[in-house]
């Protein structure tokens, strides 16, 4: 039964991150995703210190606030004349450092493990159960991730057209009256939500792997946005299964193996993609030459 819960949790993480990652990769904001996944850390820790429990709405809200704060600060420094990548670097390292200092100062008083935040402990997911009126309803992480996935799908589904236009041509979107800035912050808010609900299972650092790698894999395989989202989620789920298998074989970190598996899938797509793979390109060149 534990295997079922671990795989389900991993697949839900892959679902949440896969959908959002597509938009991050298309809008060339992959590194902002990386920054947010680091900088929600102080939010998680502060909420944990205030509430003393791991599964609160407070944690979600605090992480959301820090995610939006990160986006806002990056934007602000960028407008005041700092290069965009440098402003990303300054903001997320500072916030992450605050988070780590808070953990190391107060970790003794509360049960919060630095390692658990960073790499997650998906193996313990099925021990942390949610009980409702004495009946066990399954692991809490699954409920949290399920809720996040529903929110993400609902928001993206409702505003699919707007997100699509903002991703490909923000200038046109602004010209026809779509509030581009609002959708930017909405997307970043969703990314922070996905990060905080996955941190328990894959950790704050590796979630960026689940955000960017499957989406990039999908980007190499198709040119249609709808298909790309589907492929991205599929690649994420596949890497969860492969990664779990490898982790059991090697007795190593499950989250690490999942990210490695998705990197392997990316390499496969990079080499053998029917339209843009290295092999396909080489074959086409040879055909043209002959």
């Amino acid at each position: 039964m534990s295997e079922f819960w671990i795989l389900l949790t991993g697949s839900l993480v892959a679902g949440c991150c896969g959908i959002l990652g597509v938009f991050l990769v298309l809008r060339k904001m992959a590194m902002i995703g990386d920054a947010i996944s680091h900088s929600v850390m102080p939010g998680i820790v502060i909420a944990f210190l205030l509430s003393g429990s791991r599964d609160s709405l407070l944690m979600m809200l605090a992480a959301l606030a820090f995610g939006l704060l990160t986006t806002f600060l990056i934007q602000m420094f960028q407008q005041s004349g700092i290069q965009s990548d440098a402003s990303i670097g300054v903001v997320f390292t500072a916030l992450f450092a605050i988070g780590v200092v808070l953990v190391s100062l107060f970790a003794r008083q509360v049960h919060l493990d630095q390692d658990a935040i960073l790499y997650g402990e998906i193996a313990y997911v099925h021990w942390n159960l949610w009980e409702l009126g004495g009946i066990s309803m399954g692991p809490k992480a699954v409920w949290l991730l399920g809720f996040t996935l529903i929110v993400i799908s609902a928001v993206i589904g409702l505003f699919y057209k707007q997100f699509k236009l903002c991703a490909f041509d923000p200038a046109l979107a602004a010209a026809i009256g779509i509030p581009v800035a609002l959708f930017h912050y909405l997307l970043m808010g969703l990314v922070s939500m996905a990060t905080v609900s996955s941190f328990e299972s894959v950790g704050a650092i590796l979630v960026v792997g689940m955000l960017i790698i499957p989406a990039s894999t999908a980007y190499l395989l198709t040119e249609r946005l709808g298909v790309m989202i589907g492929l991205s989620v599929a690649a994420g789920v596949a890497s969860t299964f492969i990664g779990y298998g490898a982790a059991v074989l090697l007795d190593a970190s499950i989250a690490g193996c999942m990210v490695c598996a998705s990197a392997l899938l990316f390499v496969a797509a990079f080499l053998f993609s029917p339209t843009q793979g290295i092999v396909a390109k080489k074959l086409r060149m040879r055909r043209l030459a002959s």
Binding site: V25, K28, M29, A30, M31, G33, D34, D85, Y119, I205, L206, V208, G209, L211, I212, I213, S216, Y219, L220, L250, D251, A252, S253, A255, G256, C257, M258, V259, C260, S262, A263, F266, F270, Q276, I278, K281
Partner: peptide, 30 residues
Amino acid sequence: HTKLKQDAAMGIVLSGFFGLGIVLLTLIQH
């Protein structure tokens, strides 16, 4: 060699390598 931009490429390499590092770290610990 792909249409991926530099930021995505950096993200992929960063998390891929770091994931591998975490796996090796746990292998060493176990």
